[in-house]
Amino acid sequence: MNTNYVLLNNVEHADLNVVSHFSSALGDGAAAVLTFPTEFENIQREYPILLRKDTQGGAFQAVAILGLQKGENLFLDDDAKSTNGWAGNYVPAMVARGPFIVGFQESEDGDAPQPMIYVDEQSPKLSREEGAPLFLEFGGNSPYLDYVSGVLRTIHQGEEVAREMFAALDEVGLLEPVSINVDLKNGDKHQLSGYYTVSEDRLNNLSGESLQALNGAGYLRGAFLMLSSLGNIEHLVARKNARL
């Protein structure tokens, strides 16, 4: 899918709306999306959280699992019970952000680059005729744009926390490879492979000094949230079975 990110502004984009519905046709069909420690509290209630290695730098990244095979998002639901096409109570930030990202713009006075909102003008979620407006009639931010700003803040702050957190967990040996085998009621089998998770055994046997360091940095709670999220794999399988 082609993208064309430009700096969002209330002149060129004064009459721009965003279709806040979720569907495969609108680009929401991913089976896994990046997630961040800044939203783990909400994510772990509904989605399994696993780790994978970034293909470029090899750093660990967290992902929320939404489906069991490529291009399958089991939380997309167009029935009458779901007003926005999403069956879950919490929409992961990387989905909720829609066609927006945080970019950095150089300042004219030589200060550090400032985070700004950029919009993908090629996104199918943009419209001049329907959807939620981005700006008020006289130029102020709409409630929807304020919401998006909060979502982007969750991502931006979460990226920084994630790098340090996962490196710290890896340094004390808490991360291990995991493969999850799934048997469906129709006999089909799926495997979630290439992922990592927190080792519960190693966590239980971690030295007091390491536990104290992780807890002091705020990373220990994140590790427990990742572990507790794995119970959602059963719910994911139930969603899949319900569609067979």
Results as ranks from 00 to 15, higher is better:
G110F: 01
D111A: 12
D111H: 12
A112G: 05
P113E: 10
P115H: 08
P115D: 06
P115T: 04
I117D: 08
Y118A: 11
V119L: 15
S123C: 04
P124L: 14
R128E: 15
E129R: 08
E130Q: 15
E130L: 12
G131P: 04
G131F: 07
G131A: 08
A132T: 04
F135R: 06
L136I: 07
L136C: 13
L136M: 15
L136F: 04
E137D: 09
F138K: 14
F138R: 06
G139W: 14
G140N: 06
G140I: 13
P143L: 12
Y144T: 05
Y144H: 01
Y144D: 05
L145N: 06
L145K: 15
L145D: 01
D146C: 10
Y147I: 00
Y147M: 14
S149R: 14
G150C: 07
V151A: 12
L152S: 00
R153F: 15
R153L: 07
T154K: 13
T154N: 01
I155L: 03
H156R: 06
H156N: 03
H156E: 12
Q157F: 14
Q157V: 00
G158W: 03
G158M: 15
G158H: 13
E159W: 08
E160V: 07
V161L: 14
A162K: 10
A162N: 09
M165I: 09
F166D: 12
A167M: 04
A167H: 12
A167K: 00
A168T: 15
L169H: 01
D170G: 10
D170Y: 11
D170I: 03
D170F: 11
E171G: 04
E171S: 13
V172Q: 11
L174D: 14
L175Y: 01
E176W: 02
E176T: 07
E176F: 10
P177S: 14
I180E: 09
I180T: 02
N181T: 02
V182E: 13
V182P: 02
D183R: 14
D183F: 14
K185S: 02
K185Y: 11
N186V: 01
N186L: 00
G187H: 10
K189T: 01
K189P: 00
H190I: 10
H190S: 14
H190R: 14
H190A: 04
L192S: 00
S193C: 14
S193P: 12
G194K: 13
G194M: 08
Y195T: 12
Y195P: 00
T197R: 09
T197C: 06
V198D: 06
S199Y: 09
E200M: 09
D201I: 10
R202C: 02
R202K: 14
R202F: 02
L203I: 15
L203A: 08
N204W: 15
N205R: 10
L206Y: 13
E209M: 15
S210Y: 12
S210P: 01
L211R: 13
A213V: 00
A213W: 10
L214N: 03
L214Q: 15
L214D: 03
L214I: 11
N215P: 01
N215W: 02
N215Q: 03
N215K: 12
A217I: 05
G218H: 03
Y219R: 02
Y219P: 00
Y219V: 04
L220W: 02
L220V: 01
L220H: 02
R221L: 13
R221S: 07
R221M: 11
G222Q: 10
G222N: 11
F224M: 09
F224G: 01
M226E: 02
